[in-house]
Design a protein around this nucleic acid. Structure first.
Lengths: 108, 108
DNA sequence: ATTTAAAATCGCAATATTACGATTATATAA
DNA sequence: TTATATAATCGTAATATTGCGATTTTAAAT
């Protein structure tokens, strides 16, 4: 055991879980917030900003990119990263729907 | 290594990461969606609904509760679980703010 | 062609997560 | 009191994540 039983859940459930998982680390939240502040930047900027080594930051960027939360465009010998809006919209819509549903519910 | 450097990040960043992490598993998303559908239920109902054993479901419920995403009230010899609205509101607000910020940005 | 710069990948150690069988705790029912 | 029902906890195996030093890849600059 130890592996998640991904195939037993719906695509939507796996999609939301994958996005949430990518945001489930304070360093990755910090990267997102930094990108919101500066609009766009390269990996080295984040390395200077966070108390983490370059390979660690690179790995976090990879996970955010895999989840569709950021985009990375090659610009010369560096990579320009920025927020990928559409995936954040998926989350916003998902939680907005939850709030709409739950406000009509009574709890035990 | 292997441990997250929690103390290097802000309380807010850790809070969002903790909540997102709790939602970062399809089984826990499925539990949330089931609770939204049935309003409230006991652990055994979820065990019947999901392809997971009782201790596994119990553990997932514990994590959702620790993150403040669900409430659990003892009712006789069972525990009644339901959505904890306020934590979902934290997420909704957080992502709404991100969307507002990011729509004015241009990407590389 | 050689050097420099940026960032990805490799490899590894420490730690965390996932899943579940077995057991335990708690409360109701007989 | 004894049996039953519900769910938490314990223990453990399999797997995944985190973090970083060392190395490699890629592209620009000299």
């Amino acid at each position: 055991m130890g592996a998640t039983k991904t195939d037993h859940f719906t695509n939507k459930q796996n999609q939301i879980a994958t996005i949430a998982k990518a945001l489930g680390h304070p360093a990755r939240i910090a990267i997102i917030e930094y990108l919101l502040k500066v609009n766009e930047c390269i990996c080295g900027d984040i390395v200077n900003e966070l108390p983490l080594a370059q390979p660690t930051v690179s790995q976090h960027l990879k996970e955010l990119k895999n989840a569709g939360l950021i985009k990375g465009n090659i610009e010369g010998n560096s990579v320009c990263y920025c927020i990928d809006e559409k995936t954040f919209n998926v989350l916003k819509d998902y939680f907005s729907k939850i709030i709409l549903t739950v406000t009509n519910q009574k709890c035990c």
